[in-house]
Design a protein around this nucleic acid. Structure first.
Lengths: 347, 347
DNA sequence: AAGTATAACTTAATCGATTTAGTTCGTTAG
DNA sequence: CTAACGAACTAAATCGATTAAGTTATACTT
């Protein structure tokens, strides 16, 4: 194994001091033209690259953003990461991604790990278990240490940090309104329990839309499930029940999975989509696009969210007075992608 | 901002030397019981955690694995990452993920970045552009520096590294054989041009299966498309044509997208699945599972692949004689996940 | 000729940890 | 009474870089 080239080795080889080498490579005028050229030539020839670890230690900054998300096998999160990556790259930052697997302990562990020198700040979406426990000491600790934090999508109140949110309420309202305008009157929603913030907000948007059009809300048409990230057998059964029992003409769901399963149940019941029942879901992912029929969806623009989150974090990292800067919440607009699962609007 | 606690600060606070603190925390018998307890109590009280950067510099190892993949918004890759994460966590390693976006320059840039002290080794799936360019100097450089590399899924020959591969040929054969055994006789394949290795291998598996059952291959039943990672308009048209013109009773595809589009075309043609036409695809992802009808798929076991890759890399990192150890190629078995798009086997 | 700039380097401190090689001081052997 | 030893520490080197604070030798000023 060829040992990596260091300033020390170059210095020894060329018979100068380490600081001369360092200065020469940084184009310091302190070093003579001749020596500078010689050192630079040597460094180039042997492909010298400074050791990042040493630089981080010296500079007390890593130029690295830590990202902690509940899962990676998840279309929306990957789009957000993609956005974070783009922004980070443009602004010369690295990205480290860690997974909490929706668990509290792993989330804490990962944060502590990354906080011990590996990153300058965090972008995170909080795990389900953490939300349930309402224990945010790990967040407060890193913030206390002066590391800025940006939370996205799954956020909680009472933490001194910036936030980037999908306007879940407005998005849901957009989707439900579209159904109403295309003739739906008995619209059900398949959502999550209220402790999951995105579920709660989307439910509110649904209610808002009904209210706007003077349609009375009905608790029986609201199905709240435990798990928003996947489709458990339990959820399947409850969706089946819900769709079968209620003679709906529109179904709004907070994710793609619920919409897909509702479609399945409707198909089995012999209902036609969108002639008999319209379907709109939150999240414009692979399923919405490829299902037969394809699903009208509220697009979350994950990449934009990621870019925004990274941008806010880097801004904080690079300003001197970040300690005193106020925290704010940015909203990412949603848009409705019309597909085959809703009727066309007559204008 | 509360400055992070260091050995130096503890030493100053307790009026001892830095080395005493270090030794006390590492339970050295050199330090008296009394002092040790005092230091440990203080460290615990103020939640001392050693700085990883300093440790990495000192130990010249980071306990971090660098992962470079072409894209993150890709179900298969995320499952592999998930596997890498699990294995890494179990064995006390961290994971840094970087994206090449299927570009050569970004791949090189990322490798150089991570190689300068950030990671001890690499797990990567090579970008399409790199494969086309056939320029692997960045790989050879890090290997030269003594950093082990494990390539997975998209690999190339002639690099001194270990490899983890899906047995594409056997997987395809498994899928096609199942169709034959359940009664299909005129089976078409939608695959990629031969220069994409996974496509070529899967085509070979298809031909092998036909041969095994004494069914003559027919070039008209083989559709080779340009792009395997997504579904272009061009591809859609060709699939439509292919499915419409040939009166197939079985379709095998090398990815989910092709299968989904074939399903769409068949549905439009009024064909019933699986009664009239069976469908099997490579890759068991979200689409296969959720489509209506759900698709019988060849599962690649991405998590297992990730775990295996991480395991091989860590093994290399932890053995002294890794320089001389031989390189090998591990194959991850595929399995057939039977769903609604194929008929049941009569036994 | 003595004093002072300046160019071109080198030394040494620093980041935060570990570890090897000293240093004290008290106890005990001879 | 002193040399030797061990217990309990401390000093200093090290990892690889940066940089403030010296140090030379030479040129220039008055």
């Amino acid at each position: 194994m060829k040992r990596k080239l260091t300033l020390k080795l170059i210095a020894k080889e060329l018979g100068v001091s380490i600081s001369t080498v360092s200065k020469a490579l940084r184009d310091s005028p302190e070093i003579s033209e001749e020596t500078r050229e010689k050192i630079k030539a040597y460094a180039k020839l042997y492909n010298y690259k400074p050791n990042n670890i040493a630089l981080s230690l010296k500079n007390r900054r890593t130029n690295t953003i830590g990202v902690i998300i509940p899962q990676i096998v998840h279309h929306f999160f990957t789009t957000v990461i993609s956005g974070i990556e783009q922004e980070a790259r443009d602004r010369n930052y690295n990205v480290i991604i860690c997974l909490s697997n929706n668990g509290f302990d792993k989330e804490v562990e990962n944060m502590e790990l990354l906080a011990n020198g590996s990153t300058d700040g965090f972008i995170l979406s909080i795990s389900k278990e953490t939300m349930l426990k309402e224990d945010y000491h790990h967040l407060n600790e890193v913030i206390e240490q002066g590391m800025p934090v940006v939370m996205f999508d799954r956020v909680v109140e009472g933490i001194s940090c910036d936030r980037v949110l999908i306007d879940d309420k407005a998005g849901a309202k957009k989707g439900v309104s579209h159904m109403i305008r295309t003739g739906c009157r008995k619209i059900g929603i398949i959502t999550s329990e209220d402790y999951i913030s995105v579920g709660r907000l989307r439910t509110e948007g649904y209610l808002d839309a009904l209210d706007d059009y003077g349609i009375a809300a009905n608790d029986n048409l609201i199905l709240k499930l435990d798990n928003i990230d996947d489709l458990t057998e339990e959820s399947k059964k409850r969706i089946e029940d819900f769709v079968t029992k209620n003679d709906l003409d529109g179904i709004f769901t907070v994710n793609e999975f619920f919409a897909v399963h509702a479609t399945r149940v409707l198909t089995k019941l012999g209902k036609r989509i969108p002639e008999d029942v319209s379907i709109v879901c939150f999240t414009d992912g692979q399923l919405s696009e490829n299902m037969i029929p394809s699903l009208t969806a509220v697009s979350q623009h994950g990449e934009e969210m990621g870019r925004k989150a990274a941008s806010i974090l880097i801004e904080k990292l690079e300003r001197e007075d970040s300690e005193t800067a106020p925290y704010d919440t940015a909203y990412i607009d949603t848009s409705l992608v019309e597909r085959e699962s809703t009727r066309k609007l007559n204008r």
